[in-house]
Design a protein around this nucleic acid. Structure first.
Lengths: 338, 338
DNA sequence: CTGAAAGCGCTTACAG
DNA sequence: CTGAAAGCGCTTACAG
């Protein structure tokens, strides 16, 4: 069987050199497209390489050059389409620039996060993009920087510090959503889902700010915490309906909690947009096709990923760069739910 | 700034050896936990390594050992949560076994697929898991095998051949869904969404088979093709409602097309489960929380990913293994939509 | 324009 | 139990 023979595993520039009757150096130079080599020689070398089925061993080259073209990206919740879309953006930008991505999923496990980070370090990653798991110690950024590896933190800020960051203006996003609801005459507006973490706090701040702006006193009972998941959103909406506080609208922690809320509304014979106004956050692809389509705060997830990647590459290019921060400017997308 | 000094980049076993006053060989042996080294010496070496902040350079080791602990996985549609879940399963299994994953996204682009595959080859991947982009030539498996790289194809079969494969019994899945609908008395059942590809053909075969089993003539007009996306499902459902053929139920190409269909139904004031019976395929996480919750064919996406990973590792261990095929056994999950 | 030599950070026979 | 030497597949001064 072909796969047993590993036919090309043993073919190196040395073999190509012999075949083309030149030195290893010449082969290497040709491979790098160096203008130092005469066209005729170069062609002969390329021909030999082709004929032998030579495969460049990039890792060997990188070892020698003390370089790396792999970037590690660690995601903690790929089941949330938001992160899948961010990842797509990151990957696209990185691959276009000639990098290749080492991807790891932590499932919010600090332990796993620690392990994959160490692993990526051993793999000599040129840089790291990480959305930290919940409860990640803030010292993480300093730690990674001490490793000498360029880092960009995304989505979940890790507090003050001199690390690069790509996220969104969460406070303003919720503020926009709230203003919209307020302008439509809603008085009793809930904040649905989510429970903790910086993102949660920032979004909640937007909620509080909008209320204050409108001169409405914040009623703690209208803030219904839950897991930041579909199930959580579903449960939170059930709780909201149960407490009967004449809530007529809600902004959700994120789109997936909103989807869960939509499901619960449906089970109660209610429809967002007519019986209740519901707004999500993120604008994942699915938001345009939920039932009903979700009004939400758009922070362009894939674009966010691209910015994270761009920041990392800039940092790799120039470690001296001053702190880079990308904050997606939120934009309210009106659809049918609210 | 710390990141500029790359403090550990230069520390090698050579430095550790000097510090511990032993040879490089000894350090290497200690790092590998060899029993050949006296405890006392080993401890001294470990201490020195710790003190110096030594980081193992796995790639150098792999170059020397002609080994690799990275596995490439190429996905073509990460925006479909099905693939995100499959990827999670793959990653989990692989990382648990000590591998690290190189991940690439092709967006159904053959060109990109070719590039990332070549890139993974240069990176000396120990194996490859790929869900081929649409229209991938069937020769791909032979090509990759000729590279000497263990391969498992997932989800989209590439025809007959001696490659390892992880997918699902699509025909039977749809058959189960159809039988359920038929048993509920539906006569005019549509097949919604999707357009081409093996998976499409297999699922359609299940549709046709069930009809035949029930003695119902297949009416081509009830097969409404579309993009295999939410938008496609939405459009397909709109078309289905337009043609007024008294269709009372449908099975969808997959869950995301079903989600789109749900949205269209909602826009028409209809609700799946009462006004129309709708069944999806895949059972992505979101299916449990759509509005209404989606009855669907469960093929346990993350489990499928784990099986793909397991098959690859088995192949890496033993290239002589006979062909491995994992076909997820579909199971109908009854929820509210149908 | 091209070749010989050294070296990237490891491991692995081979001695002793 | 430990060390000296060779080598994995490359690149890069340095000669010529």
């Amino acid at each position: 069987m072909l796969r047993d023979s590993h036919p090309n595993k043993s073919i190196t520039i040395h073999d190509v050199a012999k075949a083309a009757d030149v030195s290893k150096s010449t082969v290497s130079l040709v491979l790098q497209g160096s203008p130092l080599i005469r066209d005729e020689t170069a062609e002969r070398v390329r021909e030999a390489a082709r004929k032998l089925g030579y495969v460049y061993n990039r890792r060997a080259a990188e070892l020698r050059r003390q370089a790396s073209n792999t970037v590690g990206v660690v995601i903690n919740d790929l089941m949330n389409p938001f992160f899948a879309e961010v990842l797509v953006g990151i990957e696209r930008r990185l691959v276009d620039a000639g990098y290749i991505v080492l991807m790891a999923h932590t499932h919010e496990s600090l332990d796993r996060q620690r392990k994959v980070l160490a692993s990526m370090r051993e793999q000599n990653a040129a840089g790291l993009i990480i959305c930290p798991a919940f409860d990640t110690p803030r010292t993480l950024t300093k730690e990674v920087q001490a490793w000498g590896i360029p880092l960009v933190v995304m989505v979940r800020s890790l507090g003050a510090g001199s690390y690069d960051y790509a996220g969104s203006d969460n406070e303003r996003g919720v503020l926009l959503a709230m203003r919209h609801l307020l302008a439509r005459g809603h008085k009793r507006i809930g904040f649905l889902g989510g429970r903790s973490g910086v993102v949660y706090e920032q979004r909640l701040r937007g909620y509080a700010g909008a209320l204050e702006e409108a001169g409405i006193r914040l009623d703690e009972r209208l803030i219904i915490a839950s897991d930041p998941s579909r199930q959580g959103g579903s449960d939170a909406m059930a709780a909201m309906l149960r407490i009967k506080l004449k809530i007529t609208a809600a902004v959700c922690y994120n789109d997936i909690t909103a989807f869960g809320a939509l499901a619960t509304l449906g089970e109660h014979g209610l429809r967002a947009g007519t019986d209740f106004a519901l707004i999500g956050f993120d604008n994942v692809l699915a938001a345009a096709h939920s039932n009903p389509p979700l009004t939400t705060v758009d922070i362009r997830p894939d674009d966010l990923g691209e910015h994270a990647a761009a920041a990392l590459m800039a940092r790799i290019e120039n470690p001296q760069l001053k702190r880079q921060v990308y904050l997606a400017e939120p934009r309210l997308v009106l659809r049918q739910s609210g």
